[in-house]
């Protein structure tokens, strides 16, 4: 485990009565990365996030943030957390909540908060009571409150909950901006499409154990599908079918199935030999959803029960 890691978790276990929420869990997170925690419901993702904040005490192991044990309130300086189901008082306006948080943190200014609200398109809600907002509006306000200022570590539990597609794009942009400003972002989300678009790394958890972690690119395998980008889709399809490949036309080209992913080179050579013009040929990679299902399937095949 490298010394310059911002989060260091070593052999952490936690159980709630008879349920083992985390088991011998270790993880290190480098500064400036956008990490995702993935796993089925009850896998231990939220428990892990809460252990990082000292909200849940671990039974064993050590957890440090900024080289400080999480039992110390100082470890939470520069840390921002958005819980999944937080309900701020309905009478409170974003301006009131920000004023309170600003006093506690002594970190951010109202200008920074306004800027964040502008980024999340909720600046016109500053003086509206939260009780008179939609769920999506409340979520955007909460994200603005949590991320304003100069956070060093941002923990977001289901940040896109209740947001429309436009709101999700804004959240993705916000997360990228936070990372570009040097913040480390840890996201717990079931929206794999969102995670895939914004995260650098993924940590798969199941049954309280770390199954696999790594960069998204390294986790997704090449599939048995190839996409050939061509204006002569019909001609290309016929040639490939004559050769014995199963294929279909999709927008901008043809998708061909390979019985063996390793046979991609042979197919590429065949396409070159046909002389049909094409602008690109790619072996398609697994989506994060495919990766998720494959990893979880493999895990359950090994007989690991998921904590409920």
């Amino acid at each position: 485990m490298e010394k310059d890691n911002l989060i260091r978790v070593l052999n952490v276990s936690k159980s709630f009565r008879k349920v083992q929420a985390l088991s011998d869990f270790s993880l290190a997170v480098s500064p400036g990365t956008i990490c995702s925690l993935l796993g089925p419901n009850g896998a231990g993702k939220t428990t892990f996030m809460k252990i990082l904040l000292g909200l849940v005490g671990s039974d064993s192991g050590s957890v440090t943030i900024f080289d400080l044990p999480v039992s110390s309130p100082l470890s939470r300086r520069g840390v921002r957390y958005l819980p999944e189901n937080v309900t701020f008082p309905s009478w409170a306006t974003p301006a009131i909540l920000f004023r309170q948080l600003e006093r506690i943190r002594h970190e951010s200014s109202v200008e920074e908060f306004r800027l964040r609200c502008t980024e999340l398109e909720c600046v016109d809600l500053m003086k509206r009571p939260l009780g008179k907002m939609s769920r999506g509006q409340r979520q955007r306000v909460a994200l603005s409150l949590v991320t304003s200022g100069k956070p060093e570590l941002v923990l977001l539990d289901e940040p896109s909950t209740g947001l429309d597609p436009g709101g999700r794009i804004l959240v993705r942009n916000l997360i990228r901006k936070l990372a570009s400003e040097g913040a480390t972002v840890l996201i717990n989300s079931h929206l794999l499409g969102e995670v895939e678009r914004v995260c650098d790394t993924a940590t798969f958890i199941s049954g309280g154990r770390l199954i696999v972690e790594g960069k998204l690119d390294s986790l997704s395998r090449q599939t048995g599908l190839a996409h050939i980008e061509t204006d002569n889709a019909e001609e290309m399809k016929l040639s490939l079918e004559e050769r014995g490949y199963s294929c279909h036309i999709e927008s901008k080209g043809v998708v061909a199935e390979l019985e063996d992913p390793a046979a991609f080179r042979d197919m590429a050579q065949f396409i070159l030999d046909t002389g049909i013009r094409f602008s690109g040929i790619n072996q398609m990679r697994e989506s994060l959803e495919d990766v998720f299902l494959r990893i979880m399937d493999n895990d359950s095949e090994r007989g690991n029960d998921i904590v409920s």
């Binding site: 809460k50 904040l53 000292g54 909200l55 309130p73 100082l74 939470r76 300086r77 840390v79 921002r80 957390y81 819980p83 937080v86 948080l101 506690i104 943190r105 923990l155």
Partner: peptide, 8 residues
Amino acid sequence: PFWLSLPQ
């Protein structure tokens, strides 16, 4: 959890 996540 929100209050406890503050440095208090």
